[in-house]
Design a binder for these strands. Sequence first.
RNA 1: GGCCCCGUCGUCUAACGGUUAGGACACCAGCCUCUCACGCUGGGUACAUGGGUUCGAAUCCCGUCGGGGUCACCA
Length: 471
Amino acid sequence: MAPPRLRFAPSPTGYLHIGGARTALFNWLYARRFGGRFVLRMEDTDRERSTPESVRAILDGLRWLGLDWDEGPEVGGPHGPYFQSERTALYREFAEQLIRERKAYRCYCTKDELDERRRIFEKLGRPYKYEGICRDRTDEPDRPFVVRLRLPDQGAVRFDDLVCGAIRKEISDLYDEVLCRSDYVPLYDFGCVIDDHAMGITLVGRGQEHINSSFPQLVLYDYLGWAPPAFAHFPLILGPDREKLSKRLHPEADVMLHRRNGILPEALLNFVVRLGWSHGNDEVISRAQMIEWFDFDHVGTTSGVWNPEKLLWLNQQWLKQKSPAELEAPFLEQLREKGFSAEPGERLRGIARAQQERSHTLAEMADLSSYFFAEPEPDPKARAKFLTAETRPILQRIRDELAKLGSFDAAAVEPAFKAVAEALALGMGKVAQPVRVALTGGTVSPPIQDLVALLGRETALARLDRAIGSI
RNA sequence: GGCCCCGUCGUCUAACGGUUAGGACACCAGCCUCUCACGCUGGGUACAUGGGUUCGAAUCCCGUCGGGGUCACCA
């Protein structure tokens, strides 16, 4: 069997959203697993709403997620151009062919006329479907027109969806929809069919909201004498309110918002792939494993609800297993975003290592690390409890021991604490916690020896001195 | 409203006629422990509903109810 060809065909009318990202992911995974090709095509035929900025945003989003395309914008390929706005000659050719063959016709009804009729029908409580007024007109007035599909008189359209199984619809439930405008700029179904065929697409994977457009598309394939691709319709992703995840209602639909929030691309992919697909009991799944395991048999049919807690948990899992070097750049980005003057390097990686398993996001990691980059903001409650006359000698003792240290790394610092605790006949907790408050302002930090080492001799001693002096 | 799709814990899901209906997130309890986390152990919560088919149904069929999608010169 020839290698499958799949595509992702977004319309550049805004940022890359989660639903689109998952559609892209599923198609990409299938292509990667079965040695196929993954094509990216911009469906920019809505001139009002399509923008170059959106093209940029979608490309950036896909790249951030690591979903690379074999053919498409910026990489080219043998089936270009990959922007529908540059392919009108092709649409015109087939539109005219369909008209000649009486499988389509020019319709001169104006938008206002149609709106008016729609209003009347709605007032009567009946759904409006274009009645085929221009079906049999023979004149060709010099007026704007649209090209409409001439539906067969009867019959049904059926297909076997790779995810949903057998689906069918009566022709009588369809209507003569608009294929393209006077200038032959196509609408969705027409552009989709022409391009999927021209680009050799063998498998169309998209969201379930497109199930209903499969029927007219299948009619088109039949009219054009082309073998249709296989279809796979994926379950929808719903917002917490159980409505389809949309840009308007749900801010979390923005892929790049999650990047700004400190989510790792691996985690977002992992979260989203599990919304609708599963592999036994596996939860934390890498890109490589996804490619190895993905198939449509295990894509479910029920819509999934966005679950922010699970995303956070997954992100923590990924954060934990990243190396400090991998975390360095995105961590730095977060810190600077928050106004800290951090520099890349050994120390930053050390802080990342110390914080990575106690954070859900890179943003949280940056927040938790504030005292490494600025003077701590003292928490009054922590002060009152741990910086007292009773703990003052402990702080002093630790300060003295630390000052004596030749090396100031964690391995050298830890024995100093142990020694003080032993000398004072106290548990580690009694010793470490006051120091923690003195050094960070609060009661939460990495293990005390890591904290001290990361702060460095000068800062650690200065903060201890200040705490001692303030009691 | 017409049409299309769907219906297992609160959420994501496993199960592909025979299981005490499994796992994960979240939640609760405990352990670990210098704090916070991580980790570990344990706990509660689900087959929408009514009828069939079958020796046997969460799994197959039909009805009901419920949810979502779609009905544009958007995609």
